[in-house]
């Protein structure tokens, strides 16, 4: 990224190849919509170009990327105040398909769909820490930097998020 900052804009392609999946999955989990998430991925990379001078080189590039992604997300949420997280349940139905042991798979997929929905019902803050730690596999220390908070605060929030998720998930399951 430092080379991008120095004016080697073509290097951005490398960063795109390395990080766009992670970024997409973060945004997808946060929003629950694939199409919007793709648009926002584009937005984040555009901001990286535009604000590349703000990248100091201290700390990891990932942290900076999630920082920008959160800003993009916040802008998006502000613009679409009524849009809430909504799971593309239809997507799951498509993926199940037919074939042998369809029942078993169906059962598993239903579980996953339930969890996905449960995730969608979490508060945005709790959802965020869960996604960052579970899906993006960031350490608490990194999450703390992304969220501009302390590691202890992240720890507490992850715990609360897990507890909330379990409650919702179990309610959906039953």
């Amino acid at each position: 990224m430092l080379r991008v900052k120095a004016g080697d804009v073509d290097r951005m392609g490398l960063l795109f190849e390395r990080y766009h999946r992670k970024l997409f999955s973060f945004l997808y989990h946060m929003l629950g919509r694939a199409d919007t998430s793709e648009d926002l991925v584009q937005n984040v990379f555009y901001r990286m170009l535009k604000y590349r001078h703000t990248y100091t080189g201290e700390g990891e590039f990932r942290t900076w990327m999630y920082h920008l992604a959160r800003n993009v997300l916040a802008d998006h949420v502000k613009k679409n105040r009524h849009a809430t997280h909504h799971a593309d349940v239809a997507d799951f139905a498509e993926k199940i398909g037919g074939g042998a042991r369809a029942d078993e798979r169906m059962e598993h997929e239903q579980e996953v769909a339930a969890l996905h929905r449960a995730l969608g019902r979490l508060s945005a803050d709790n959802r965020e820490v869960l996604i960052l730690s579970r899906f993006q596999e960031l350490k608490y220390e990194e999450i703390a930097r992304v969220l501009n908070t302390t590691e202890g605060a992240v720890k507490v929030r992850v715990h609360r998020a897990m507890h909330e998720l379990k409650t919702i998930y179990l309610r959906i399951e039953n």
Binding site: H20, R21, F24, S25, Y28, H29, A34, D35, S37, E38, V41, D88, D91, F92, K95, H108, E111, V112, L115, H116, L119, L130, R134, F135, M162, L165, K166, Y169
Partner: peptide, 16 residues
């Protein structure tokens, strides 16, 4: 739950 979360699929970003 943690493991189930890991099973939540993330669709591939589209080709475009």
């Amino acid at each position: 739950v943690w493991q189930a979360l890991g099973a939540v699929p993330v669709p591939e970003p589209s080709e475009k």
